[in-house]
């Protein structure tokens, strides 16, 4: 692929991504008052979307084949327990990640 061609692919991805990010503001972000329906969505969507993102991150898990999603299940459980215990974001993330790395590098090889 020529450099120009590669650059145009990158430009296409950049433009479409920016468009997706700007569209809601272009259509709904005017000076007038935000419709109540959109305000409602703005309040409930974050809960649903974070749930969607958790699943999105775990989409590669294979429950039917070895290791049956066990490393992910255990590491997610570790994050939840750590967070309920201390409610420290850093501790929950660091603990869960180290747990996952140990699980896939040493136990579920």
């Amino acid at each position: 692929m020529t450099d120009t061609r590669a650059a145009s692919l990158i430009a296409a991805a950049a433009i479409v991504t920016a468009l997706l990010r700007f569209l809601p503001f272009l259509f709904l972000g005017g000076k007038r008052k935000t419709p109540e329906y959109i305000t409602y969505l703005g309040k409930v969507l974050p809960y649903a979307i974070i749930g969607m993102l958790v699943v999105y991150c775990l989409r590669g898990v294979t429950p039917l084949n070895w290791p049956h999603g066990l490393p992910e299940l255990l590491a997610v459980a570790a994050v939840v327990v750590l967070h309920l215990w201390r409610r420290s974001t850093l501790l929950s993330i660091a603990g869960g990640t180290i747990c996952y790395m140990v699980l896939i590098q040493f136990i579920f090889k």
């Binding site: 993102l53 958790v54 997610v76 994050v79 929950s92 869960g96």
Partner: peptide
């Protein structure tokens, strides 16, 4: 993943 799980909790 851990970040999103934390935010979720």
């Amino acid at each position: 993943t851990a970040l999103f799980v934390t935010v979720f909790v």
